[in-house]
Design a protein around this nucleic acid. Sequence first.
DNA 1: ATCTTAATTCGGAATGATTCCTAATTAGGT
DNA 2: ACCTAATTAGGAATCATTCCGAATTAAGAT
Lengths: 142, 142
Amino acid sequence: MINKEDLINQLREKGLKLTPQRLAIINALVKNWKAHPGASLIYKDARKKAKSVSLSTVYATLKEFSEKGLIKSLEFDRMENRYDGNLSEHINLICESCGTILDYNLPATVEPKDIARKSGFVVTEARMEYYGHCRDCLKRKA
Amino acid sequence: MINKEDLINQLREKGLKLTPQRLAIINALVKNWKAHPGASLIYKDARKKAKSVSLSTVYATLKEFSEKGLIKSLEFDRMENRYDGNLSEHINLICESCGTILDYNLPATVEPKDIARKSGFVVTEARMEYYGHCRDCLKRKA
DNA sequence: ATCTTAATTCGGAATGATTCCTAATTAGGT
DNA sequence: ACCTAATTAGGAATCATTCCGAATTAAGAT
């Protein structure tokens, strides 16, 4: 779903430099992608291997990577933002008790009941958002 | 979609008190619900009528209302949180240029192309989230 | 109408994830 | 090896939101 070689190749394609810090961050991302890690987990894990990684760099790198499309960022207000290595369309099942985030691949139709049956996750609230540009803004720019 | 009487009735049903501050906030919510207002807009608008509304109260009230299900909160990390008076299932179309949030009622299938055709909103990124409780947490509580 | 009390309010301080700033360092092409 | 734009560190700044403790008040009970 996400792997070291791909990330490094994409990084090079986008004209980004491969630094020891970024390598440590990439390793942490690949190792933890199932957990949808946040900046603090990446920081902690990257530090184990490379002591010279600062929190600023972790933030800058994760931002850079998600802006360039290597990973996807899941943003929250009270919870730490999380990063997702699964770039295909899917639903993130976010546990309000423990913060665990599970992937749920989209079937033809999206039914909370199906989700509960298949994954044991009980949906209490749905959040679907499509980001983009509204008609007025598109018009204003044209 | 949201109206003064309903909000006041629900508030009473939930055992909450109707204060002048809350009335001002309710009026601001009803007046601005199409804009999916944030705390600052509600604060500004509520102040016009009732000078004695503090920002703390606005935050506390919006939090209380969304926890009790009178409104729905849309949470963001860098953007101010926004509040939605449309409690039926729908997609929020969030403009990354100007922050406008439009409602898009769910048809049978959800196609970005259909959205563009009908609303002029061009989707660049999708975000769908179902909140709830994962199997492990449910097990732990039982 | 007054009393009672739990809920509500206020304003300011605290929080905490994230961004910003600036100087120093460095990756990678020439 | 050299150059230069990119990257990094780390500490300060940001900013929406929450927390705090004291004062006020809505609304049911007497």
